[in-house]
Design a protein around this nucleic acid. Sequence first.
DNA 1: CCAGATTCCTGACGGAATGTCAATAAATTG
DNA 2: CAATTTATTGACATTCCGTCAGGAATCTGG
Lengths: 249, 249
Amino acid sequence: MLAPMRTVSAKQQEIREREQTILDLAQAMLLERGYLGLSMDRIAEEVGVSKGTVYQHFVSKEDLLAAVAVRSANTRAELFERAATFRGTTRERMGAIGAAAELFFTLFPHHEQAERVIKSSSGSEKITPERSLSLDTCVFRCFGTATGVIRDAVASGDLALRPGQSVEQVCVGLWNLYTGAFLMRDLESHLNIPAVTDPMPALVANSQVLLDGFGWRALSTEHDYESARLRVFEEVFPTEAKAAGLLPA
Amino acid sequence: MLAPMRTVSAKQQEIREREQTILDLAQAMLLERGYLGLSMDRIAEEVGVSKGTVYQHFVSKEDLLAAVAVRSANTRAELFERAATFRGTTRERMGAIGAAAELFFTLFPHHEQAERVIKSSSGSEKITPERSLSLDTCVFRCFGTATGVIRDAVASGDLALRPGQSVEQVCVGLWNLYTGAFLMRDLESHLNIPAVTDPMPALVANSQVLLDGFGWRALSTEHDYESARLRVFEEVFPTEAKAAGLLPA
DNA sequence: CCAGATTCCTGACGGAATGTCAATAAATTG
DNA sequence: CAATTTATTGACATTCCGTCAGGAATCTGG
């Protein structure tokens, strides 16, 4: 009874572990050599299996990339959800989500590139539908947690939206600010402009400016959000922040 | 004397025109079928020349893509520079640059994708250095015009930067907001969230909110920037705005 | 108008990568 | 332990990028 069960698990676990190994490798190759440098043959070789076996895990190169993206996207959603539990004012909780986004983009620099390749048209149709759905679900979860905090702010009176403004607009504004900044980091960091070469400080500052523009209390002129940000790293993401170099080890 | 000259020009002009034809085709194929769907063989076939001839214009597929991007990037810089000449307050002129960005992203939806592919590492080294430089120069020109307007605002007192803030930070903030929004349009527009499906209204609103956050006078609560935006389309970009569907034909 | 020089064009070819599949090996089950 | 199901292999078809030797077209000086 036990022996065959164990044997079953043994094989199945070997397969599951190999899948993670492949994902790790693909992630590293993507980051190092880009989409074109990611070769299915090389992955098979380095993992020590034949190409056919790799294709039993993932139906195409794009599908493998999507699987890499799904793994990090899940982590992002978890980071966001943990951030939203930060005990503080609504605006501090929003800042915590910003800190989570910072962490994510620092710890998983490959993710943006993976997502860009996947969604670049004519790649999507070669991806398992479930994986495609998983990716969307992760984004939904992130949007959901963020809009939840924004809704709390509206309910508590910290944030008074003007006519025509919506929680979605606030959420999309922050989202765009962040993704834009990390796109810049990936594409234009060689330009010799201080705020471009190192976009993180400007990003943190600009997100505060945006929230000030919405009139989300307490305004950044009335409160020290920089120390709140550090507290988030210390209290909610101690290990992650150290791994990202945002806190001293 | 005249005949040979004319023949020379005839040949050279044919070559120049062919280059534009190739660029047009590559641009269309990129937009329609994505990077993978852009095939050098198909381009050669559709233009009616051999592949070797295409490779005499562009040293690689990435180089061709870069040439496509250079052409649109130049147009963007010109749009920005024209926008900066708008007669109005400093903040209206900044809004004019935003309107130019809107136009650009509407009229050249391929550009972002081209730039993303090019800059995705391991592609850059297969591009002619001059073309690479041209691309950077265009971005510099855009940053330069934008920061120029911001500097004017500081000089005139419309914008009072707080300690630690810089004109570059303001510029990068707007830049990120816009590129983030257009990245979202390209990657996530299928998500069923209103502000995501149609990101333009939220983008225009959020850029005003950001400038309000910086305290750039006159604040959007004190002035009708929506009609200023329409005036920019009418007075500075009449033909372009009609082509983009942002003004009635 | 012509011959020699130069520039331009061609398409077959090498090389590399993706994805398939029939044959083979391993694992599971009764 | 035999039968069946599942997993693995690696050669193969296909596609695409980029090259290059040979040939066509164009230019130039007389």
